[in-house]
Design a protein around this nucleic acid. Structure first.
Lengths: 151, 151
DNA sequence: TTAAGTGCAAACCGTTTGCATGGAT
DNA sequence: ATCCATGCAAACGGTTTGCACTTAA
């Protein structure tokens, strides 16, 4: 992900300020790398440090960070958006495996998507900037439980 | 997609009824194959035939059809869910190309995902039932417009 | 100093639900 | 006749917005 210094400079460039709240929210994401936080979860974490701040600030800050390319918005279909640090230096994106039974979300690193991107670009002329791949299915433990249940 | 007769029988099996409204909603999706309808769009279509029905019926029917496997829920990140006919007989799923500039959604047919599914299944044990792939980028016309704008 | 940011609460909007009525089986 | 389904309106939950106050630059 971009260095904190880069983020700070990008904020200033755009006429924004680096407030303690923004700093704190950014750190919450950095300390939860690899997890998918909802605005409400960020809010809960933030209240531990700043008990009297509002969730509106969380939403506004997250919006800003998404806009700056620091965060990536994810939708898992449960009605609330999740966010995670977006790392353009990471060579391969990861995909989300959502269990249709227990709802658990695991990740999978992969590089096969690149050939698919090339194929799409060639065929459609669509210039791909990013992708989100979500697989639905049964996680290992749910498969085991279902197996047991059947006998 | 499943034949209408199959859908009808599956409904009865589960103790549901085939009401005119459900029939109409099903037909709206059949007549808009390849498009991604929001609940509200379905509602608008439906009102043309049944002026005094409620949107709650649309949501309840869509839920039921998703549950029956007739429809597939899609999330494009604009806060409202879209739905399209789910066709398990179609050998290859399609992916959505969302333009980050104009928001247009186009589709791309592809079969490269199958090797990826096999790889994931092998490596993680996750039993994949379905997948949704969304690419973000610039569609052809937005690329052209941006090119013009730059000079 | 001053434009930008915050906190609060109200508004918003897609979606869900409770309840009395209506209808398919 | 019996449940299931519908329509309406109210409730819900995540997200956004208006406004007066505060603050980083």
């Amino acid at each position: 992900m971009p260095l904190l210094k880069d983020i700070y400079e990008k904020l200033l460039e755009r006429g924004h300020k680096l407030t303690p709240q923004r700093w704190a929210i950014l750190n919450i994401f950095l300390q939860n790398k690899g997890r998918h936080l909802s605005a409400d979860e960020v809010y809960t974490h933030l209240k531990a440090l700043y008990p009297n701040n509002g969730i509106a600030t969380v939403y506004r800050t997250i919006d800003l960070l998404v806009d700056l390319g620091v965060l990536k918005k994810l939708e898992f279909g449960d009605g609330r958006a999740r966010f995670e640090i977006y790392d353009p230096d990471e060579p391969h994106h990861h995909h989300h495996l959502i269990c249709t039974r227990c709802g658990s979300v695991t990740e999978f690193q992969d590089d096969l998507m690149e050939s698919l991107e090339v194929a799409i670009q060639k065929k459609t002329g669509f210039q791909i900037q990013d992708h989100i791949v979500t697989f639905y299915g049964l996680c290992r433990s749910c498969q085991a439980e279902l197996h047991q249940a059947r006998g």
